[in-house]
């Protein structure tokens, strides 16, 4: 069972990575949700034994490679985010779907804030509030997935 789950984890991460590599441009680039982080959060809630802070760090490195930025930025942002996610993971079974949505949204925002701090140290300018749009689209995609019947770990105790 675990092996098949691991396969699913890798497959979904690969798909998310290809989504990231799609040539986004213009407004789409601004709206592009952080697919990799969404997938990681999903697996953190669903299978915390297989997917942890280390996985997130490696995935972050991949994203760093793909974006062409300085190595370690996304890695650090994902590490911090997944740490928070893991700490509250056991409490999550008590959340209802709205609470869970807020929780995911704050995780996405957290990763963006960490990234923004790192970028500001590197000397880039504040891009305006539109910088946080990917978190909103990310949460919308999460809700869409939940509506379509994705089990986000709230009832996984029984299975």
């Amino acid at each position: 069972m675990h092996n098949s789950q691991l396969k699913f984890i890798y497959l979904s991460l690969l798909l998310a990575f290809i989504c990231l590599l799609i040539p986004w441009s213009g407004i789409a680039l601004w709206l592009r949700p952080d697919f990799m982080l969404l997938v990681i959060i999903y697996w953190l809630l669903r299978a915390p034994n297989q997917c942890n802070v280390g996985t997130a760090w490696f995935v972050g490195l991949l994203v760093d490679l793909a974006t062409g930025g300085i190595f370690g930025q996304y890695a650090l942002a994902y590490t911090v985010t997944t740490f928070v996610a893991v700490v509250y993971q056991r409490r999550l079974v008590l959340f209802n779907s709205t609470q869970q949505l807020v929780y995911v949204f704050s995780l996405l925002i957290l990763s963006q804030i960490v990234l923004l701090i790192l970028k500001t140290f590197a000397g880039t300018e504040w891009l305006g509030w539109a910088y946080f749009l990917p978190s909103i689209t990310g949460v919308l995609i999460w809700q869409l997935a939940v509506t379509l019947g994705l089990n986000t770990g709230r009832h996984s105790r029984g299975s």
């Binding site: 802070v53 280390g54 760090w57 300085i70 190595f71 370690g72 890695a75 650090l76 740490f83």
Partner: peptide, 25 residues
């Protein structure tokens, strides 16, 4: 048990990322 605690992992990987950032920049 899930291996080392999340906090230990956080510290380890965060330090690793910071080292990478410093090296790369």
């Amino acid at each position: 048990a899930r291996g080392p605690s999340p906090f230990a992992r956080l510290v380890f990987f965060a330090a690793l990322s910071l080292a990478l950032i410093a090296t790369d920049s």
